[in-house]
Design a protein around this nucleic acid. Structure first.
Lengths: 240, 240
DNA sequence: TAGATTGTTAATCGATTAACAATC
DNA sequence: TAGATTGTTAATCGATTAACAATC
């Protein structure tokens, strides 16, 4: 193969904080917007891989997946030199680099707190149970649910969280409880050593020391869409 | 009441496009980031309303819900003068204004395309079936599911989409099909007159004329979190 | 070498924050 | 009037885009 991607080592010299620690790419200083896009790039590369595409330029990638070529290069450059000038990127190699960067080259164990509609669905959700993520336990306050199984997991009482988290080695969590219960549940998670939480409860949880949160109230996404909904349906402005 | 919020009319003079059309706040020119926050403000105000709080300043609102007071005022100012200098905002009135702005003062009918794990859960999801949103129909390609019921809705074949959409008056949709099926399903939705789609499929769907999309691949949210997951767990950098 | 495409620097654009005059 | 808090303008910060030199 004519592509010789440089090792992350020398190329990563622009990741200032990282080089200091001698590890790939320290999270601090990287924008969540960038990380989100890296994840989209990886998703796209995986699709190319399935199609047997071996090499691609930022421009082709942009056309195929509605991305900006400049931004792709800028984003990647933050972490190393993964391409070859004049040639583009090796799909498999770049996918590997991104997997390592995003930490999806290993398995993350998740617990789900709140086994209502959404929690239950997420326990069975393929995207949360493939490759790098596995749901290892569920928690609920309803005694009727405790001890039962939902999809692949057993439902526990929230009091068991510290013990179950330790035993299973869980380090991430999905929070899908009602708003009123969310702050306390979140504190329990942080205390149990969970370091990252995807929060579906309709409250903004600020991060706790040692525990990052991403708040994704789905109703808010729907309301955002409702706001913009008219624009499309309307006749264009008359010319001035 | 000592609060006399001005009508949207004169106050909305900074919403340039809107005043031109003589309607409240035209979507164009408003950032999705702003709209998302408006939705968070509304959620917060509703909570205050339940607690019986009648009046609040941007600063109090910020403290209570982890928001920036300056940003609250800036965001609101885009659409009118909803507060009273020296006094703050009337909770109920501001909530009403925001509801109107976000179009959640009326009911939006949703269809769900793809009745797998996630689609099924969302059909029953309270946040998608309360107040301003109702799920009115489901669609799936699996003949075994067609004709059946899921929570509140009947499952139809995708071919029936135009007819069902017309009959129910649906104007928004949730897309929860596999990646490969998403683009075609999205086109069908746009053709059936759906004007806004919340897309959970792991592909980026670019907007179609007359139909807006919000792409919210949940796995990507999880991967973003995985990237940052180490930061918290690590010992702080040694002092230089 | 000529053509292509990267990595990077500079220019633009947009969003957030700070500061303050207007005013209840 | 004095105190408070808005709406708004100006300053800062960050993110995206354009342009191009480096180089395969």
């Amino acid at each position: 193969m004519s592509l010789k991607p440089t090792s992350p080592g020398p190329g990563a010299r622009s990741a200032r904080a990282a080089s200091r620690a001698g590890r790939p790419a320290l999270p601090e200083g990287v924008s969540p917007l960038t990380v989100n896009r890296l994840s989209v790039y990886l998703r796209s590369l995986r699709q190319l891989l399935e199609q047997g595409v071996r090499r691609i330029s930022s421009q082709q990638l942009g056309r195929a997946f509605h991305l900006s070529p400049t931004q792709i290069r800028k984003d990647l450059a933050q972490f190393g030199e993964f391409g070859v000038r004049g040639q583009g990127y090796d799909v498999a190699t770049l996918a590997d680099h991104l997997s390592a960067l995003l930490q999806v080259d290993r398995t993350h164990r998740l617990v789900i707190v709140g086994m209502g509609n959404l929690g239950t669905a997420l326990a069975r959700f393929p995207a949360f149970n493939t490759g790098s993520f596995v749901v290892v336990a569920g928690f609920d306050s309803d005694p009727a649910k405790i001890g039962g199984r939902v999809g692949p997991v057993t439902v526990h009482a929230i009091e068991e969280l510290p013990e179950v988290a330790r035993r299973t080695g869980a380090e991430m969590a999905i929070l899908a409880v009602p708003a009123a219960a969310a702050p306390a549940a979140f504190r329990s998670l942080a205390e149990a050593g969970i370091v990252a939480v995807l929060n579906f409860a309709p409250v903004t949880l600020p991060p706790l020391p040692g525990c990052r949160v991403k708040n994704v109230d789905l109703r808010i996404q729907l309301e955002e869409l409702a706001f913009f909904r008219t624009a499309a349906a309307e006749p264009p402005d008359p010319p001035v």
